[in-house]
């Protein structure tokens, strides 16, 4: 069997990675930067990536780590240094405006959660991964995954009670 090439992987997975990153960041620009930065490293170290049992999970872990590592300074810099706005950004902008008009509250509450909790939620409710795999992606124990998720859900519930009593 021929080993998976980077090109095949990108063909199959890039869209999914972008969606995953959007769920993590909540913002298309940041998501794009996050995926780009990660995929550059994926391509440069492809041989290592392809040796992983599940390359797609391995790459999700890279994206997640990158996301968790982003400090304010570093992503601010990335945003400011972005090249000319492309069509992607414009298209996304429209959607964004529309969406904020909808006042999607859950989405805005998500933004206030600690990053690791948000990542755990995304992995369970968007990626539909079992807890063991979530733990693998986040690099923590299964128990930690469960407690993060329950804490995050508690926070969201509290917000909800507050807004719509």
């Amino acid at each position: 069997m021929t080993p998976l090439t980077y090109e095949e992987f990108a063909d199959a997975q890039l869209g999914a990675m972008l969606r995953y990153a959007v769920m993590l960041c909540g913002d298309p620009h940041l998501a794009q930067d996050l995926v780009q930065e990660t995929m550059v490293r994926v391509q440069l170290n492809w041989r290592k990536v392809v040796r992983a049992d599940a390359p797609d999970r391995y790459v999700r872990r890279m994206i997640t780590n990158q996301y968790l590592d982003w400090r304010r300074g570093s992503w601010l810099r990335r945003v400011l240094l972005r090249a000319e706005p492309d069509e992607t950004a414009k298209a996304a902008h429209v959607d964004h405006a529309q969406l904020s008009a909808d006042r999607d509250q859950i989405w805005s509450w998500l933004a206030r959660l600690p990053k690791a909790q948000r990542a755990a939620l995304v992995l369970r409710y968007y990626e539909d991964l079992p807890d063991a795999e979530i733990a693998d992606v986040l690099g923590c124990a299964v128990g930690t995954v469960r407690s993060s998720i329950s804490r995050a859900l508690a926070t969201l519930r509290a917000e909800m009670v507050e807004t719509c009593p």
Partner: peptide
């Protein structure tokens, strides 16, 4: 999450 999928560039 599903609603925001279309945000993906």
């Amino acid at each position: 999450f599903e609603r925001h999928e279309k945000l993906a560039p």
